[in-house]
Design a protein around this nucleic acid. Structure first.
Lengths: 123, 123
DNA sequence: TAACTAAGAAATTCTTAGCCC
DNA sequence: GGGCTAAGAATTTCTTAGTTA
């Protein structure tokens, strides 16, 4: 899966194996090995490849069909802005107060757990 | 990077190393090795981990700060790992419980403010 | 119970070089 | 130029078992 995607993305970008190799600091032989399934890149190399080809590791690994990486890499998108603000504040707390916040969250977590346990007792 | 994220996501989901190990068909020792940086998962394992933990390989590898569609965080803004974990936990709370967390942090914030105001006083 | 680590076995990758088209 | 592959060296992972908290 990775081999096919790596090859197709590279070709889409109009790169040769050697050009890609230079970008990720390896040799064309290694890139060829990846593309023919004779070996697989390390995690670090996987990231480098995704960077060099402007895609995502999830795409290269076949976990998603989205090629473009820009959406995944966008940062700072939070579902719950209030929660985000609260925790940014908490990050500035003194250690003592921070611990109080953490403890309270733990307490809430336990409460949530028991709540869902009552809903479905499947084990 | 992967080690830290793997650990925090696993804890967020309330799993032990052994439980996670079973999900991805390996042993707890191997999971421990990942989390302590003694080894790194193969690409196949990386996918399995992302599946088991309901996140992305890009997140586990540190290419993005988005955990997934639902819960999220921004590493780097929070130096405190425990606070990070608490934040992720809170993101999964029900709306009602989430609000309690937010309110409590607001309360702590007020307390902190007064505390620094009263620095001179003894108590 | 949960997590960490040492050590050796086992498996994999990387490099080099040569080959083909 | 562009890409493919063999073989061995080099590196890494995985497993087991014992240890720690």
């Amino acid at each position: 899966m990775l081999s096919k995607r790596l090859k197709s993305v590279r070709k889409t970008k109009g790169l040769t194996q050697e050009e890609l190799a230079k970008r990720v600091k390896t040799t064309k032989g290694t890139i060829s090995n990846y593309e023919n399934g004779h070996s697989t890149p390390s995690n670090e190399m996987l990231k480098d490849l995704a960077d060099a080809l402007d895609t995502t590791t999830d795409y290269l690994l076949g976990r998603t069909n989205k090629i473009d990486g820009s959406s995944l890499q966008s940062e700072g998108e939070f579902n719950d802005p209030d929660l985000q603000i609260a925790f940014r504040d908490a990050a500035d707390f003194s250690e003592e107060t921070k611990q109080q916040a953490i403890d309270f969250i733990k307490y809430l977590k336990e409460k949530e757990k028991n709540r869902s346990k009552d809903k479905d007792k499947n084990f």
